Simulated assay, not measured.
Amino acid sequence: MRRRQVLALGAGLVPLVAGCGSGRGPRERALASSTVSVIVPGPQGCGADRVARSLRGLAERASLVRGVQVVNRPGPTALAEFAETRTGARRLLMAELGTVGMVRPDRQAAAFAGTTPLARLCGEWELIAVPAASAFGSFGAFADAMRRDPAAVAVAGRAEGGVDHVMFGMLAQSLGVDPRLPHYVACRSGDDAAGAAAGGLAAAVVGSPAGLGERLRAGELRVLAVSAPDRVPGLDAPTLLECDTHLYCADWRALLGPGDLPDDDRDALVGMCRSVTETASWREHCRRNGWAPLYLDGDDFGRWLGVESARLSKAFGDLGLRA
């Protein structure tokens, strides 16, 4: 099989973790006495919200900041509010993969232009699963069916234009299939999507380990492949790379500052992110929530974010989606 490369995380897969040191400079001390607002483009309880609230609890507990106010807004509203942010407001944005889809199509490739990238905190890998009794015994069998007659393959996932849909579109493209041909069954939640597959309404389901976990544990579904670059501990499934499909895709969450953020303030906020993500408590939060620790900051994160935005813009266009 000819390997097709569709890379979603790029060179930023390797976490960059740097020590912060015990001393605090003037900006760090100023941050420790300040309250920071984090705008979340989604409702309370969504993935980005859980990451923001975990960051808040750990940063406050370590006295890295006096307080973090998590502000939930509908996606487009959140982006509009953040675009109006000015230095001194200490208002940040918790961005994620789906945030790119909330931007006008002609601006998606540079979705985060005018912001200050701070840090990519974590992400969730995607699973491709089928009902336990499915005739697809391997990812290869599923891929062959997609190539033969993509319109006959129904795949369930969460909302149209969300991470599951985008992941499936990139997967189809990596197999040489027009992403608009397979039938995508959009569901309200990962569990609903898993139920659609288990109930015979879809041949397969794309979703996060957390969303599919209950039905996987019950034996209703089995995993064909995972979108991580390496095997996921505790999950008996090959990576897409092992299946000759070079696709990495995570539902990442990252913290951004306003575009006119002074360098010293940026460094202090990056230091806060580093300090939080280096703790055992953060690692426990990641383990409990099924998050992969994909920490990245500095110029490397800024470059990665630009490449990722362009890739996602192309994926949305290939699916025929519009903001």
Rank of each mutant, 00 (worst) to 15 (best):
G98D: 15
P41Q: 09
T77G: 10
R3D: 03
A315F: 05
G98R: 14
S138A: 10
D192P: 03
T239S: 01
M272E: 00
M146W: 01
A172Q: 06
P43T: 04
D178R: 04
R274L: 13
F316I: 05
E28F: 11
G12S: 14
P262C: 09
C243P: 09
L312V: 13
R27E: 05
A32M: 07
R231N: 03
L171C: 05
P76R: 13
D300G: 14
A95G: 07
I39V: 14
E308T: 11
A132S: 12
L241H: 13
S275V: 06
F82V: 12
Q5C: 10
R215S: 11
R231P: 08
P150E: 00
G12P: 05
V68N: 00
L269Y: 00
V38H: 00
V307G: 01
W252C: 02
Q173R: 14
R73A: 14
V17A: 00
R27N: 00
A11Y: 04
A197M: 01
S189L: 08
D265A: 11
D230M: 05
L247A: 07
G271Y: 07
P233Q: 10
D230W: 15
A203F: 02
P131K: 14
V17L: 04
L256R: 03
F82E: 13
F82L: 11
A152F: 09
S37P: 01
E126T: 10
H285Y: 09
L92R: 08
G57R: 15
T77S: 15
E160Q: 07
A111R: 15
R274M: 11
V71W: 00
D297Q: 09
C122R: 01
L256K: 03
G290H: 03
D49A: 08
S208H: 06
A159M: 03
A250F: 13
G195F: 11
L118N: 13
R91L: 13
T77Q: 15
A11L: 10
R104L: 10
C187Y: 13
D164W: 08
G317W: 01
H183P: 01
R322L: 02
S138L: 08
C20T: 14
K314T: 12
E220Q: 10
L235K: 02
E28H: 15
D164Q: 03
R148G: 00
S227N: 07
C243A: 13
C243Q: 12
D300P: 04
W252P: 01
S34D: 07
G137I: 08
C20R: 09
V100K: 09
E242N: 12
F301Y: 14
C20W: 12
D192H: 14
E81V: 09
A62N: 04
L16N: 01
R322T: 06
R61N: 06
L79E: 07
Q69V: 15
V65S: 02
V226W: 03
L319R: 13
M146C: 06
P229G: 08
E81D: 15
E124G: 05
A109V: 09
A80S: 12
F82G: 09
A250D: 07
S313G: 15
A59K: 10
D264E: 15
